[in-house]
Nucleic acid binder design. Structure first.
Length: 443
RNA sequence: GGCUAAGUGGCAGAGUGGUAAUGCAGCGGCCUGCAAAGCCGUCAACGCCGGUUCGAUUCCGACCUUAGCCUCCA
């Protein structure tokens, strides 16, 4: 069983081979913790989660790293705006992010490094780049020297001459070349700065990822897979490759995957358009597994247009699957290689969902299919998530149902329908089956 | 302007060198006191123009359109 991944580096779907037989390491760019996670953050994390799951299925030892960027200009601006301490802000947002991802049934990454806990490592990495003569010091900044890395642009297919100097990139007095980027910069902020060989300051945007990766997998190890949103390809990942190649003797990373962004009204979700959808807001009204299915309903490299239809569609899929899963209480599972093959084709989740929906229907007629269905749902993180219904509420619902049953028995259908309306207002759906009445809470 | 991806029925979204899944919606039926659900059946689509081919929606090329990146962004 081979896993194929579309590699941004080559613009081709390629067979994935780990650097070291059955050992895999993967890094996915996590959020900058300055505002509550939105559905786009969740999508990136979900793609990472799915790769983690399928890699764990296929290979023995998978290290999954997802960082938390807690040092950044945006954080400082936001904390000033809100009048809260930087640490309070980043810790609050981190907590919300982790709780949200957990609700969406994502597995905990092997490592979740934070910038603030890796300053020494970052300083080390920058020193290595300086030692390698790939960076220079100017006006208290450490700046990466683009001249030192000839392969720049390989990931995003940008030619150096296309990056019209100064046209988009702000030329700074301390830069020799407008395309150079900052590894370390001075800080005037009391609670956001650290002492370094180059003075009190803080790291630039790109260096943290490279440094934290190297710290975990080893400075001269190659990363197997690196992923993130496709808006990070340039300049962030391009810059990472430059740094990572100039602080170590090894190739930086073999496979790059990039997920498409989430669109709202066919436009990129952005603060300026005011169309940001927060995960917390969605989870207030939607079952998290339905949201998870919605995020899987499009192929990860395609843009995903987030609409009420997306949710409705996913709710339907969820209910079809769960209604089948709930029919048997056994928990046996059976590996389904046909299903795994679908996921191995560059994570084809729309096809995988289709397969599961069909399987759920089959399982209702043929219980021998059930162990495979159960296994497949577990693999991609679909589970029954009814939540715990309050005992007294259950009692109330069931007594209303028996009143209705009595009315039906007396052919008092006016009263029976009235009671059904009462229950419906409580979000309870009734199903009069041949073996009695069943009910469930509407999602 | 450069780079990347994509254009499939009313909507969402797979897939294929020999006319195309699935879900929602629609229509007909079974079931039901009614309904919901479920089940069965059914209607309906491959941006445009060339090329290769016995044959293309699928491969190649041009064009048009859309989204994203080129500035912080998952």
């Amino acid at each position: 069983m081979n896993l194929y991944i579309y590699n941004t580096l080559t613009n081709k779907k390629e067979r994935f081979v780990p650097h070291n037989h059955d050992e895999v390491n993967m890094y996915v760019c996590g959020p900058t913790v300055y505002s509550e996670p939105h559905i786009g953050n969740a999508r990136a994390a979900l793609v990472g989660d799915l790769f983690f799951r399928i890699l764990s299925e296929l290979f023995g030892n998978v290290t999954y790293i997802r960082n938390l960027t807690d040092v950044d200009d945006k954080i400082i601006i936001e904390s000033d705006k809100l009048g809260v301490d930087i640490n309070t802000l980043t810790e609050d947002i981190t907590r919300v992010y982790q709780a949200n991802m957990l609700k969406l049934n994502m597995l905990k990454p092997t490592h979740e490094p934070k910038v603030t806990e890796n300053i020494d490592n970052i300083i080390d990495t920058i020193q290595k780049i300086l030692d390698n003569k790939s960076a220079y010091i100017a006006e208290n900044h450490v700046v990466f020297d683009m001249e030192s890395f000839s392969q720049y642009g390989a990931l995003s297919n940008k030619k150096s001459e296309d990056l019209i100097d100064g046209a988009r990139i702000k030329p700074e007095s301390y830069k020799r070349n407008p395309k150079d980027f900052v590894l370390w910069k001075p800080s005037s902020h009391k609670s956001c700065g650290w002492d370094s060989p180059w003075g009190y300051g803080r790291p630039g945007w790109h260096i943290e990822c490279t440094s934290m990766i190297k710290n975990i997998i080893g400075n001269d190890a190659t990363l197997d897979i690196h992923g993130g949103g496709n808006d990070l390809i340039f300049p962030h990942h391009e810059n990472e490759i430059a740094q990572g190649s100039c602080c170590s003797s090894s190739h930086y990373c073999n496979f790059w995957f990039h997920n498409g962004i989430v669109l709202v009204d066919k436009k990129k979700m952005s603060k300026s358009l005011g169309n940001v959808i927060l995960v917390s807001d969605i989870l207030e009204k939607e079952n998290p597994i339905i949201v998870r299915i919605a995020l899987m309903s499009a192929h990860y490299r395609q843009p995903l247009n987030w609409t009420q239809d997306t949710i409705n569609n996913s709710r339907n899929i969820y209910e079809k699957i769960i209604s089948s899963l709930d029919t048997v209480s056994s928990t046996t599972t059976e590996r389904d290689s046909k299903f795994i093959d679908l996921l191995c084709d560059d994570l084809n989740t729309p096809n995988a969902l289709q397969y599961i929906v069909k399987q759920a229907r089959d399982a209702k007629k043929d219980s021998s299919v059930m162990p495979k269905l159960r296994y497949n749902c577990g693999l991609i993180g679909i589970k029954s998530d009814e939540g715990i219904i309050d005992e007294s509420l259950t009692h109330k619902i069931e007594s209303l149902i028996s009143l209705r049953e009595a009315a039906r028995k007396n052919k008092d259908y006016v009263e029976a329908d009235r009671l059904r309306d009462v229950l419906s207002d409580m979000s309870v759906t009734l199903n009069d089956g041949p073996e009695g009445v069943s009910w469930k809470i509407k999602h």
